[in-house]
Design a binder for these strands. Structure first.
Lengths: 185, 185
DNA sequence: AATAGAACTGACTAATCAGTCAATTTTTAA
DNA sequence: TTAAAAATTGACTGATTAGTCAGTTCTATT
């Protein structure tokens, strides 16, 4: 594996474990088995490394979820699939979840950066369709998207604190009902 | 004002502006107009300062919201009042909002710490009552509370990005509807 | 007025960290 | 084969930081 990849994988892990600031770039390089200098060759500052990690994460989330949406599905089915895939991706990638929450609550983040990601654009399209079809509440699409994302976050946080429910499909369906009831007309 | 208060007020402001880690204790002391030593006299470590700030914030939120709940109100009215008061408190105290989000997404935080706060206990009582009365979904009360809190967060974040709606009571009521529809039976 | 103890000061330290750079190795392409 | 370009190393630096401490000032009590 090339060194850039090695740095990204290690950084993701260490940032999630100890936060951006408590993790020294030198530590990332060491644990990745590369030199300190090469980290700055690929990422000219620590901030850039952090931002690239976030962009990569959002793109992987997009790929993972978009692949599961079935073409002939109804709108509610598509939203359900998107919701469940997001939930599972976050459960299966706990480091990414922690990293994402830290990033999205840091000064790096704002709504414009958020809107640039394909994952968000895909979600916006679904929201707009749902509003047009009269299935979803007549509210700004971005608000509906953020509501759904927030509900996924809440669900993941809850399941992590109560792992006995994590494998229970019935419970997950109830979690989806919470989110769906919020946005449906 | 005593020096401990001065430190807390300044720390809250600087932490919200630049994050915990990018804000040096020496800078807090300087801007608060006190000596470096006195900061560590009152808060033996930086971490303790951060935690005390969070506890104080949650208590102020409790006081502010609890005061507004009318004794004879129905359950839905009480939840509405709590929701609206939370929203307004967060809008009026943007520094506290940023600080709270950073803290609750850091390693300092877990569900147990969360459950210790009177604000959360008050919310839990309302949720339990609502479940008993058959008004709210039969789900773990903590999940309903976290859902409501998450919806307040989403609403505040949205209003900050779209301030043209911030004074619009109709829009706020629609935001409440989103949250209410999620948890209501 | 005398005393004790609490509040307070600010210079200081030991450690840490992001980023640099001169030198070396590896890759590419002519 | 050769030479230029790209990748890689790791020791180093200048800046920053949490926390200390010896000494000073304020406050309360007798």
């Amino acid at each position: 594996m090339d060194r850039k990849q090695k740095v990204m994988i290690t950084a993701r892990k260490l940032f999630a474990e100890n936060g951006f600031y408590s993790t020294a770039t030198a530590k990332v390089a060491k644990e990745a088995g590369v030199s300190n200098g090469i980290l700055f060759h690929y990422f000219s500052t620590k901030d850039i490394l952090i931002q690239e990690l976030y962009n990569d994460l959002k793109y992987r989330l997009f790929k993972y979820t978009a692949d599961q949406i079935y073409k002939g599905a109804t709108l509610k089915e598509s939203i359900y699939t998107l919701w469940l895939a997001s939930l599972e991706w976050n459960m299966e990638n706990p480091e990414d979840f922690v990293f994402m929450r830290q990033f999205e609550n840091s000064h790096y983040f704002n709504e414009q950066i958020y809107g640039n990601h394909r994952f968000v654009q895909m979600s916006l399209e679904l929201a707009e369709k749902g509003i047009d079809q009269g299935i979803l509440k007549k509210l700004p699409p971005m608000l509906l998207v953020q509501t759904m994302s927030g509900m996924v976050e809440t669900s993941v946080t809850y399941l992590k604190a109560h792992p006995e429910n994590a494998a229970n499909q019935d419970f997950k369906d109830k979690l989806f009902e919470l989110a769906w009831d919020a946005i449906k007309k």
